[in-house]
């Protein structure tokens, strides 16, 4: 095994207390471990209480896996994540995949790790780590994350629209505000601010556009200036958040039908799906409405069109809002995909 080598010095932009902590810690690492310094401090948006983020990478089998380690310091804490070489290589492969549906396979943790490795400083690194690092690029992360964030924005918009239609005003407000934050995150990724976390959206917008500028305000519209009137808020969100191909792919209009052995029992607003003598699932809200239509014999397209009309939302919004629960019911054997054509 190649011994780890000192690869880089930590730049002066990293505060002295952080540099000292990292250098002290690195001395305790085994020879075959690589250490990448990363996080908000390296990104340049950290503050005096930001945690010190390190990735410790080792060959699989050479260490007993542990997920994280923490250490309290005077004004910060150290946050270490341990990764095997296999995890790092798999991550590089996933992001290199040019397939159009690669977004479906990438979760929040993948984005977080990929970007953090891309911006990371390999303070101590084995040769193979140096070799693989060029495969992690900020541009690739930003390009994919911008699309993913817009899918998330649409999903929250759809849920907000349905919540509003069902009289859940406060829930709708929260969902629409979250939609605005995801949209801003997507816009920022396109503009070059790719740190993949919504909590930094305003800070990134202030850094990129300048706080209070017209571009800053436009980027964060719906979040900074969310209308207290939900109908207005919703209509503004619909104008800002497009139904992209990625959204269509994430929430495909594939028809569901009730499984043959499932009986539906109604209890006020909720429905109980009884699957043979095996299990019962309770559903409520918009999914209960869909189930009710399916149980009455309506095919998927008619069922969703009827409910969408009743709620004054689009079929796309309805499908996106209900998708997670419908998929869960599918996994549980209560629903299955029907072969019918979607109009």
């Amino acid at each position: 095994m190649t011994p780890a080598t000192q690869a880089k010095e930590l730049p002066d932009e990293i505060p002295p207390d952080v540099r000292n902590e990292i250098h002290r810690y690195v001395k305790t690492l085994p020879d075959d471990a690589s250490c990448i310094v990363t996080g908000s401090i390296v990104e340049g948006i950290g503050n005096i209480n930001s945690d010190i983020d390190l990735y410790i990478i080792q060959q699989a089998g050479s260490f007993t896996p542990k997920p994280i380690a923490i250490g309290i310091r005077e004004s910060r804490y150290m946050d270490l994540e341990f990764l095997s070489d296999q995890t790092v290589r798999r991550l590089a492969e996933k992001f290199a995949d040019p397939a159009a549906d690669v977004l479906q396979d990438l979760n929040d943790r993948d984005f977080d790790r990929y970007y953090r490795i891309a911006i990371g400083i390999p303070l101590v690194a084995e040769d193979w780590v140096h070799d693989i690092l060029p495969e992690f690029t900020v541009d690739r992360s930003r390009a994919l994350f911008s699309r993913k964030a817009m899918v998330r924005a649409y999903h929250h918009l759809a849920r907000g629209a349905v919540a509003h239609a069902m009289g859940q005003t406060r829930g709708a407000q929260v969902l629409l505000r979250e939609a605005a934050l995801w949209r801003a995150t997507s816009v920022l990724a396109d503009a070059g601010e790719g740190y993949p976390s919504i909590k930094w959206a305003e800070v990134k917008a202030a850094r990129h556009f300048g706080a209070g500028t017209a571009q800053y305000t436009a980027c964060l519209s719906g979040y900074l200036d969310s209308s207290p009137d939900t109908t207005t808020h919703l209509s503004q969100a619909r104008e800002r958040i497009p139904l992209t191909d990625d959204v269509r792919q994430a929430f495909p209009d594939q028809p569901w039908e009730l499984a043959e052995n499932v009986q539906v029992i109604t209890d006020g607003d909720a429905q109980y799906l009884v699957r043979g003598a095996q299990s019962v699932a309770r559903v409520s809200g918009v999914v209960a409405l869909v189930i009710s239509e399916l149980a009455a014999g309506a095919p998927w397209t008619d069922a969703t069109a009827n409910i969408a009309t009743k709620l004054q939302v689009s079929r796309g919004e309805l499908g996106a809002a209900a998708s997670a629960v419908l998929r869960e019911l599918g996994r549980g054997g209560y629903l299955h995909r029907s072969a019918g054509e979607v109009a």
Binding site: I45, G46, N47, I48, N49, S50, D51, R76, Y77, I198, K199, W200, A201, E202, V203, A205, A206, A211
Partner: peptide, 20 residues
């Protein structure tokens, strides 16, 4: 972790992070 975020953001004038 959130309390660290809040205190650090207030100190640095990071309005959005503090509010979040």
């Amino acid at each position: 972790a959130l309390r660290h975020d809040l205190d650090g953001a207030l100190d640095a004038g990071q309005l959005g992070l503090a509010w979040w």
